[in-house]
Simulated scan of single mutants.
Amino acid sequence: MDTDTTPLALLERAQKLFLAKDLGRFADMFAEDGTHELPFAPPGVPKFLRGREEIRRYLTSITSTPLEMTRFHGLCVHETVDPEVIIAEYEGHGRVTSTGKPYRMPYIQLLRARDGEIVTWRDYWSPLAGFQALGVRGLVRTVGGRLRRRVLA
């Protein structure tokens, strides 16, 4: 079991789980009432999720997308005056499994951790990169359609 509960250690574990598409275990990292915010989410993708189980439903709904993240590059972590909060900048590299086309996804994330759990994960990912990789219809159909079916079920 990992004993380092700093925000940076949680980010590093989350990235490993994301690369492995083990998003159920990523959801387990959230506090029971934690939040996952996606301020730049395109139509069909929620901008705000509250609670571990709602976050789990969203995260597990995206595991079957045709986007496969293969690595993260250029991690730059900014510590803040609040020891619970870090801001991370990096770029995800991967491929579209249905076409083999490579893609890059820039991220800026604010992570707040308390007692070894993620309290807030604010994810400023680029819908433009998703559009470029999948096309507008593909992104909304892939991410938004699966999510609506799972959340409303």
Rank of each mutant, 00 (worst) to 15 (best):
M1I: 15
D2W: 11
T3F: 13
D4L: 02
T5Q: 14
T6W: 08
T6R: 11
P7M: 00
L8E: 15
A9R: 11
L10A: 04
L11V: 02
E12F: 05
R13P: 03
R13Y: 03
A14E: 03
A14S: 08
A14R: 03
K21P: 10
K21C: 12
G24N: 13
F26C: 09
D28T: 10
D28K: 11
G34E: 15
T35Q: 12
L38I: 08
L38W: 07
F40R: 00
P42S: 05
P42F: 08
G44P: 03
P46A: 12
P46S: 14
K47V: 00
R50C: 00
G51C: 09
G51T: 11
E53R: 11
E53F: 11
E54C: 02
R56N: 12
Y58V: 08
T60Y: 09
S61H: 06
T63M: 13
S64G: 14
S64V: 10
L67T: 05
E68P: 07
T70H: 13
R71N: 15
F72E: 00
H73P: 10
G74W: 00
H78F: 11
V81S: 09
P83D: 10
Y90D: 15
E91P: 12
H93W: 06
G94I: 00
G94N: 04
V96T: 09
V96I: 06
T97D: 09
T99H: 07
T99G: 10
G100W: 05
G100R: 08
P102W: 10
Y103T: 04
R104S: 09
Q109T: 03
L110M: 08
L111Y: 06
R112V: 08
D115C: 01
G116H: 01
G116W: 02
G116L: 06
E117G: 02
I118C: 01
I118G: 00
V119N: 03
V119E: 07
W121Q: 03
R122K: 04
D123A: 04
W125R: 00
S126V: 00
S126G: 02
L128W: 09
F131A: 07
F131Y: 09
F131G: 06
Q132N: 10
L134A: 11
G135F: 14
G135N: 15
R137C: 06
R137Y: 11
R137A: 10
G138Y: 04
L139G: 01
V140G: 04
V140W: 01
R141Y: 12
G145V: 02
L147F: 15
R149A: 13
R149E: 12
L152C: 11
